[in-house]
Design a protein around this nucleic acid. Sequence first.
DNA 1: AAGTGGTCTAGACCACCTT
DNA 2: AGGTGGTCTAGACCACTTT
Lengths: 230, 230
Amino acid sequence: MDWQGIRAEVLRRIEARDYPPGGSIPNEADLAAEFGCARATVNRALRELARAGRIERRRKAGTRVPLAPVRQAVLSIPIIRHDIAARGLAPGYRLISAALGRPDAATRAALEAGAGPAAAHLWHVVGLHTGDGAPFVLEDRWINPEAVPDLGPESFAAISANEWLVAHAGFSAGRIAFGAVSATPATARLLGCAPAAPLLRLTRTTRSGPRPVTLVRLSYAPGHEIATGF
Amino acid sequence: MDWQGIRAEVLRRIEARDYPPGGSIPNEADLAAEFGCARATVNRALRELARAGRIERRRKAGTRVPLAPVRQAVLSIPIIRHDIAARGLAPGYRLISAALGRPDAATRAALEAGAGPAAAHLWHVVGLHTGDGAPFVLEDRWINPEAVPDLGPESFAAISANEWLVAHAGFSAGRIAFGAVSATPATARLLGCAPAAPLLRLTRTTRSGPRPVTLVRLSYAPGHEIATGF
DNA sequence: AAGTGGTCTAGACCACCTT
DNA sequence: AGGTGGTCTAGACCACTTT
């Protein structure tokens, strides 16, 4: 039995309530003996189940089936252009504006830009991604120029700021949040939707090492959903 | 060097562009020799980086730093009551309605309920979660009674349907999707917000083994965000 | 055909936590 | 104090994919 087989069998027992919610499951050594394999193989299987939130493991206390499993949604956030292409549409990008500007307090805080003069000179780039010519998502981005020195308006002419940054700056994962907003008049005009239409908005902060580089707000066209990839 | 140290060092080299985007990194055997550890340890470190989307691995072709990393957002979806309590609010739940009803086509499809008579008799449960008495999220749920036989209106009197199902039915992960909707008049009244306010909506389908059990739509109060736990 | 990652083993030591 | 999971090792074989 390989580790994926053991994972499947243990999961089956959990769902069949052989291992009931709140109960313990045998320790690794016992399971290894039952399945006739090495303990490391059982460990691998149980580690994956723990990562998925289906079991809880603590040294000495053993492994338990949680009463209230913490559900986890793993969302893949692809490059927007690929996302559009994957839906069978022809991706396009149109730069709306790119200039140095003064961000609001929330943006400054997210980018850890101080209140000093530097905070008055963040790059502000707005662009529209399209699929088959129709608006797909509006990208509103602030960039900390201290973190990306060799950056100018010409950087954003052809491709999206996201791809430029991926290609020219070191990227780390950051915080991603989902919310809902009303389309402002300007946003509605760009997305071609009714004013005040409800829009799914994704906010992402990206770091290069310890330093925040960019904050992007993506406002998706009405009706758009982002789902787990099951 | 343990596997987490190796992971950190390789990540550092990626972000420092020692391993540039689009380039290859040494194979496991070479890295093991460099770090003076077993290949299995390097494997563990690289496996975690691959799962995070920071490297791409293919047999024979080796390991590469992707030009366009697929970003992943891991969202934890806790029990709503715990979510409310974690914000320092007193959680509450009020049942709005619980009855057998006929779902619309989209709901039937998600629950794989046919067009036959059974589809006309799904449980429909609506409840409001509150924090310190203020509306937090509206829960609109359909349940396939074939999958949960011992279910009646009394099941939902005290606790939320979600917790009842967690306690009484086998649960598997399902599909989770985020979208934005306008508050309907009825929803606005329950959430105490303006009609047509933009609401973040989470839709979750849950299965017990191969069979869909329940479809829940959570409409969060205006301004609510769901974020990764970084 | 050959190189690379994927996995398994048998054993060992350790960190952590409950008792 | 002792049990449990977390990790590492050295070696081996296999699966996959490119050459």
